[in-house]
Amino acid sequence: MPYPAIRPTERQFDPGDYPVRKYNAQNGAEVRILYGNRRFGLRLALSYTNITDLLAEEFLNHYDETTGTFSTFTFSPDARVALFAGWSGTEGALSPPSGVDWRYEKAPQVTAVRPGISTITVSLVGVI
């Protein structure tokens, strides 16, 4: 089962960083060493407010199928359209670079709003 193709209510994106180590000399000068050419540690926080319990269940099922925070996954074309709805820039700006996939940073958080309606928040992290 792919990641649910549902438009989120709120999306927070952190582009991560390249593998850089910084050292400071005694005189204060900074030395930076680049250890790789791929950005990692991207973060995508998604909030789905007031959706039906059946839709919320799709996230829980997907989380279970990816063995929680263990396995990585990519978004289907439909899911990408839904996830980046409202973004008028290029989709690539919010996507991980080649070779970087998503995994769950933590378990989806489900809040019951009223019978049949829930709010769910999902936190993803991009890893090499």
Partner: peptide
């Protein structure tokens, strides 16, 4: 009413609450 407006919507949508 519970707000169900999502990203990309230009008009608010709702679902009945209590």
């Amino acid at each position: 009413l519970l707000d169900t407006t999502t990203l990309g919507d230009t008009d608010g949508t709702v679902t009945p609450g209590t």
